[in-house]
């Protein structure tokens, strides 16, 4: 549980960037029925985004940052969180799925109808690069995710020990991905830096896929 120290330190830094392009948070539409509504194959202007990655990678912080919500009290996700945000004419329905080892086998519950996969990596947690690489490789082999564009967020760049995106890309052999569009983006879910650029790429890839 070493990262807890880092979190304390990081919380003191103020947000550097506000997310100008992502706006107008949708009203909180929950309940089982709204989950079903978001489950169905999405019409043209709706995009289903799956947010995956190891535990403590910063998925929920990223999600809350996208929705302009308070990120000071985030606990490990035991199930999932869903938020909808508007961006560039799209309604992005983002599903943040818990990343703890015991619940990773259940990621496939959520694969159906995914338009874009966002994979979040803790760039400072070098000890788990191998583990996160394996999980990503397995996801890319999933039939239900075949051809789905993947954005890799090299998160926690606000930490001094963070590996740069280029190093992570090389470590994960991203250049060998041939069957889909992919992109790696360095970011800090805490400060918001880099997130907008990543989401721009998401919208671009959806645009080219849905046309």
């Amino acid at each position: 549980m070493s990262p807890s120290l880092c979190v304390t330190v990081r919380l003191t830094s103020p947000p550097l960037v506000t997310l100008g392009g992502v706006s107008k948070r949708e009203g909180k539409k929950m309940g089982l029925l709204s989950i079903l509504r978001k489950l169905k194959s999405t019409p043209d202007q709706e995009v289903r985004i799956l947010l995956l990655g190891l535990d403590n990678g910063g998925k929920t912080t990223l999600l809350k940052q996208l929705a302009s919500e308070d990120i000071s009290h985030i606990t490990p996700t035991q199930g999932f969180n869903i938020k909808s945000v508007q961006s560039q004419g799209f309604k992005l329905n983002v599903w943040d799925i818990g990343g703890q080892r015991k619940i990773r086998p259940y990621w496939r519950n959520y694969f159906e109808n995914t338009d874009v996969l966002i994979y979040v990596i803790d760039s400072a947690d070098r000890k788990r690069f191998e583990e996160t690489g394996q999980e990503l490789a397995e996801l890319l082999d999933e039939e239900k995710l075949s051809g789905v564009p993947v954005l890799i967020f090299a998160n926690k760049q606000d930490l001094l020990t963070a590996a740069p995106a280029s190093e992570i890309a090389e470590g994960l052999n991203l250049h060998t991905i041939r069957d889909r569009m992919w992109q790696i983006q360095s970011c800090s879910a805490l400060t918001g830096e880099g997130i907008q650029e990543g989401m721009n790429w998401v919208c671009k890839s959806v645009n080219s896929k849905k046309k």
Partner: peptide
């Protein structure tokens, strides 16, 4: 009230 740690993921119905 009795709380049951029923499942490792969210309940449905």
């Amino acid at each position: 009230c009795k709380e049951l740690k029923a499942h490792i993921l969210p309940l449905t119905n």
